[in-house]
Simulated assay, not measured.
Amino acid sequence: MARQMVILALAMASFGCSSQQSSAAASGGAATPAPKATSTGMKVETIAKGLDHPWSVALMPDGSFLITERPGRLRHVSADGKVGEPIAGVPGVFAQGQGGLLDVVLAPDFAKSKKIYLSFAEPGENDTAGTAVATATLGDTALTNLRVIYRQQPKLTGGGHFGSRIVFDGHGHVFISQGERQDRPTAQKLDMLQGKLVRLNLDGSVPRDNPFVGRKDARPEIWSYGHRNMQGLALDPRTGTLWESEHGPRGGDEINLPQAGKNYGWPIITYGIDYPGYKISESVGTSAPGMEQPHHYWPKSPALSGMAFYTGRPGSAWNDSLFLGSLVEMNLIRLSLKGNAIVGEERLLADGGDRIRDVRVGNDGNVYVLTDADDGKLLRLTPPGK
Rank of each mutant, 00 (worst) to 15 (best):
L10P: 00
G100V: 03
A95N: 14
L257H: 05
T137H: 09
D372Q: 04
I116E: 11
L156W: 06
I7C: 02
G72V: 03
V343F: 05
T157P: 07
G130D: 03
S177Y: 02
P211E: 11
G99I: 01
F212P: 00
G226I: 01
M330H: 14
L66C: 06
T32N: 10
M60N: 12
A30K: 10
G204Y: 07
P33W: 05
R215H: 13
Q178N: 11
V343M: 05
D127T: 07
A2N: 14
M307W: 03
R3Q: 14
R151I: 01
P108H: 12
T239K: 04
L8G: 15
L337E: 09
L200R: 01
A317W: 05
S18D: 11
S245T: 15
V213A: 14
V343E: 11
S224E: 04
I273Y: 01
D217E: 15
Y275F: 15
Q188A: 12
S56P: 00
T32Q: 14
P91T: 07
Y225D: 02
A350F: 08
A48L: 06
A9Q: 14
Q259D: 07
D209F: 13
A260S: 12
S113R: 10
D80W: 03
G63R: 14
V328R: 15
G29V: 01
G92E: 13
V44E: 11
N340Q: 15
K115L: 05
W298M: 03
G84C: 07
P91W: 03
G89M: 08
S164K: 04
E254N: 08
D62H: 09
L197I: 11
T144A: 12
H161W: 05
